[in-house]
């Protein structure tokens, strides 16, 4: 297949991975644990949008905010019910707990929608041709939406008090506490932003292919790889890491059978862990 066409698919996939990786890197940096439930938050968002879009017959531009709102609420609820109780314990306990939360969310989706795959719309989209490349309208929407969200995220992180506090806490949680930052408030914002971006990522993933209860779990490795590639606790790094992972996964089709493309993020991760464990931009060490 044409290299440029694969690059384009890589950018689309990379947008989705990037949106997921921002949430993972923020929770990793601020709460100190790898959230194994993040992929299932994405799936949750995708299914909320499915309910809004197909059952309530809302247009997609309204289904998306509904998914975002529900996923943010879910992330805050899980934190209040479960994760908050482990703040004083070793962060590794949070990781194990998040593994359990991941399965709870996935089971809930299975109970509600069954184990099979679903589509948002069975209508076949006609791919447009630009300079010889095939592009579906949905793919343009995904990339454009991601760009808008990245700009909004940048404004939030660099211009607002809470955004700066969030970056400070991801940089050095102890020093942030010593500076009088209200850490619980920053944590709530972290879940809100991570949840919102996860919901959008989930909806985009559903648009790009299909919905299934495992959709988030299957993408989790790519999301983690992107977050580690970008350096833990670094949202900008995670976005770049997302595109690197997405493009590498699609490009791998040139040399690897398609059924093995899920291995590519892992390979990137291993190479990264051997060569430069702190990430491309030297995230927090250790």
């Amino acid at each position: 297949m044409d290299i440029l066409q694969l690059l384009l698919y890589g950018v689309v996939l990379g947008s989705i991975v990037a949106l997921g990786a921002v949430g993972v890197t923020l929770t990793f940096g601020i709460l100190g644990f790898a959230n194994f439930a993040h992929g299932d938050l994405m799936a949750f968002g995708a299914y909320v949008a499915l309910v809004a879009y197909t059952w309530l017959a809302l247009p997609l531009w309204l289904a998306l905010p509904a998914a975002v709102a529900a996923t943010v609420a879910l992330a805050l609820l899980v934190d209040a019910l479960v994760f908050r109780r482990f703040r004083t314990r070793r962060p590794i306990v949070l990781l194990i707990s998040s593994f359990g939360v991941a399965l709870i969310l996935r089971s809930l989706i299975q109970i509600g929608f069954g184990p099979g795959t679903v589509l948002y719309s069975t209508r076949i989209q006609i791919a447009e041709r630009f300079w010889g490349l095939r592009v579906k309208p949905d793919q343009i929407v995904i990339v454009a939406l991601t760009l808008v969200l990245v700009v909004l995220l940048h404004l939030f992180l660099s211009r607002t008090r809470t955004g700066k506090a969030m970056r400070a806490m991801a940089d050095n949680p102890t020093l942030a506490r010593l500076s009088g930052i209200d850490t619980e408030n920053v944590i709530r914002w972290t879940w809100a932003i991570g949840g919102a971006l996860a919901a959008v990522a989930g909806v985009c993933l559903g648009l790009n292919s299909r919905l299934s209860p495992e959709m988030g779990w299957f993408l989790l490795l790519a999301v983690f790889a992107a977050a580690i590639l970008g350096g833990i606790g670094r949202p900008y790094g995670a976005i770049l890491g997302g595109y690197v992972v997405g493009i590498c996964v699609e490009m791998s089709n040139l040399v690897l059978p398609a059924e093995y493309s899920p291995v590519v993020p892992f390979a990137l991760l291993v190479v990264m862990l051997i060569v430069r464990p702190t990430g491309l931009f030297a995230g927090r060490s250790g």
Partner: peptide, 23 residues
Amino acid sequence: VTLRLRSDYLAIASIGIAEIVRL
């Protein structure tokens, strides 16, 4: 590869191994 690093990385790498074996 992973034991030199903090324990979270082992957890993440081990799902990768499980994925490869599954495939």
